[in-house]
């Protein structure tokens, strides 16, 4: 997997002093020693942060222009910072400051945010099987920090399906890295926004598609996923006229349906071949 580390966790040492062998799934029972558990948590947390580093580069220009646009949109400095801190959803923040500049009513801005962020429900559905055993004190912050980037990185970690009981620490590491990075560059964008003429015209928004392409590639490993991606792409171009970016959710639905269909057809074909 591109950019995702495959390094092994520090061998946890069980109470009788035997080190678990490398590559062997670490069971919860093997972590009876508190220090070994702590070491594994820290390892997951730091690996999550490290695997997110490339995506921080991708988010950086995006956050900078958010700050710059917010500074010129008529939004107060405090509100622009509060939006990053409490909403923490890049594309909807972008759209919101654009709507503020166009003096759109608050209700429309909130509704647009709802629709633009609907895709996050698909993300939480995907993570659900991995997080459902966690207490709410974990689920709440992990939900608050759920972004495209953290989702994409974390889902690869979870799909490795080893028995590490602390995979959620990986997601926490990725989440915090994304959050701090976003706050920092948004703030700098706000400070610089008034001083850099025409920050929007620089095209820094190219960072988003470029980052997302890097995030898509590792998922595309089987024919049904290829079908899914091609269909979602075609649908996204056919649904451009839908308001409020609804096209994203509709196109994703089309892609998912076609992927499922392709998977079923492939399964039926295999069955026929075997007979």
């Amino acid at each position: 997997m591109a950019g995702i580390s495959e390094s092994k966790p520090p061998s946890p040492v069980s109470r009788n002093g035997q080190a678990t062998s490398e590559g062997e799934p670490v069971s919860a029972a093997g972590l009876s020693s508190p220090t070994a558990a702590e070491a594994l948590k820290r390892h997951e947390f730091l690996t999550g942060m490290r695997d997110t580093l490339p995506l921080l580069l991708g988010a950086l220009p995006f956050a900078l222009i958010y700050g710059a646009i917010a500074a010129s949109s008529g939004l107060s400095m405090a509100a622009a910072i509060a939006m990053s801190a409490f909403v923490f959803a890049g594309s909807s923040q972008f759209i919101a400051v654009g709507l503020v500049a166009a003096q759109t009513p608050v209700a429309i801005i909130v509704l647009t945010t709802l629709i633009v962020n609907l895709r996050h429900m698909l993300y939480s559905a995907t993570l659900l099987p991995y997080l459902k055993e966690l207490p709410q004190r974990w689920r709440i912050p992990l939900a608050f920090w759920l972004t495209d980037e953290t989702f994409a990185v974390t889902v690869h970690r979870f799909q490795r399906n080893d028995a590490s009981p602390y995979q959620h620490w990986y997601q926490l590491g990725s989440s915090i890295a994304m959050y701090l990075n976003w706050q920092l560059w948004c703030f700098l964008g706000l400070l610089l926004g008034n001083r850099i003429p025409d920050a929007q015209g620089w095209g820094l928004d190219v960072a988003m598609p470029v980052t997302f392409i890097g995030m898509i590639i590792p998922f595309v490993r089987t024919l049904p996923v290829v079908v899914c991606v091609l269909t979602a792409g075609a649908a996204s171009l056919l649904t451009l006229t839908l308001p409020y970016k609804l096209g994203i959710v509709v196109s994703a639905g089309a892609g998912i349906a076609s992927g499922l269909l392709a998977q079923r057809l492939a399964a039926t074909r295999d069955e026929t071949c075997r007979q």
């Binding site: 996923v225 991606v229 792409g233």
Partner: peptide, 18 residues
């Protein structure tokens, strides 16, 4: 079984028009 199609589908639908 449809969950694994979500990330590439959503990300592609955002990226291609952009």
């Amino acid at each position: 079984s449809s969950l694994k199609f979500i990330p590439p589908a959503v990300l592609t639908a955002i990226t291609l028009p952009a």
